[in-house]
Simulated scan of single mutants.
Amino acid sequence: MDAVRGSGGSETAKPPRRSAGRSLRGVVAVVCAGVLLASCTAADPAPGESGGAASSAADRPKRAAPPRADAPLVVLDPGHNGRNGANLDRIERKVPNGRGERKHCNSTGTSTDDGYGEHAFNFAVAEAVRDRLTRQGVRVQLTREDDDGVGPCVDERAAIGNRAGADAVVSIHADGTDSDASGFHVIYSDPPLNDAQRGPAVRLARAMVAGMTDAGLSTADYIASTEGFDGRDDLAGLNLSTVPAVLVECGNMRNPDEARAMSTPEGRERYAEAITRGIEDYFDR
């Protein structure tokens, strides 16, 4: 995450708009009712099914239309980047931390004992969350478009969400701590520095914990809070956000069981589903 626990991670707040039309349920209902999708749950038929490869266009599900202009905007921030480790001179320069001090631009992130990098896990999960949300008609932007670059710095990651006027920013990470520690936790900026951090970010954190718990994930057993919440003042990406923002530590990459899950496509899909549930819960409250 954002260079903590050794795991190597305008000022006017814009609280999320809460009209019924901006809920995810409202967006999905409009997409379905408008016949922009032939079936909101249908999958592409396999060759040989429903007429096979020669099936007519009428038999095939339609592609989802682009998200509506008034749909919620979610910025996903996959922590770190694939080439950070080879560019320490760039990621160790100091940038503002949002509380009058300075910290490293970024960090390398942690990894499993087998060498699967946190940066790769973060990006894979972010892509999967993006795909899930986009299918629901949500507008999604990532702070980086691949896993073969450097940075961006933590202050620029915050600026991306601020400039976009995001309705929610979710930074995706994994921790690297003692091997017997396990579970996820959600970090928010505390004490708050603006209205977005004071109210909406806390609600986003609570919704994220609820969604991930509902998806069957356990809260962390190695932080002070047993409920999965972690208010902190040292993460620049959260401190500098003027829109609702949280950071999700999906689990511990040094825990053998969680490392195995994070290293498989099926495990990463489970984390993506859990994060998506948290975002859905936030918008649908």
Rank of each mutant, 00 (worst) to 15 (best):
A3N: 14
L36T: 02
C105R: 01
D175E: 11
N252F: 04
D234I: 13
R17K: 13
A20S: 15
D148H: 12
L37V: 15
D180M: 05
D230T: 04
E227I: 00
P72K: 00
G34C: 00
A65G: 11
G165Y: 01
G100W: 10
Q141T: 15
H104G: 02
C105F: 02
P15V: 00
D281S: 10
A13D: 08
S107K: 00
R144S: 02
R163M: 01
V154C: 10
S19T: 08
T41I: 13
A236R: 09
M262P: 03
Q197D: 06
N255Y: 01
P67N: 14
N239T: 11
F184N: 08
A64G: 13
A158G: 00
V31L: 10
L240I: 13
N106L: 13
G278Y: 03
R132L: 15
T134R: 14
K14N: 14
C105Q: 01
D113A: 15
R18N: 14
A159R: 15
P192G: 07
G9S: 10
D131T: 13
R260N: 07
G85H: 05
D70P: 08
P265S: 11
G109K: 00
I279P: 02
E101P: 02
G161W: 04
R18C: 11
A215L: 03
E156Q: 13
G8V: 06
S7H: 09
D233W: 06
D167I: 02
D70S: 13
L217A: 04
L142W: 13
G82H: 05
G115F: 15
A124R: 11
S263C: 07
G216I: 07
P15T: 03
D221N: 12
G161D: 10
N162D: 14
G237H: 12
D44H: 05
T41H: 08
P61T: 01
G26M: 14
E273W: 03
V169L: 12
R25Q: 11
R99G: 01
G251K: 04
S23V: 03
V35D: 11
D175M: 07
V74P: 02
R232W: 04
K103Y: 06
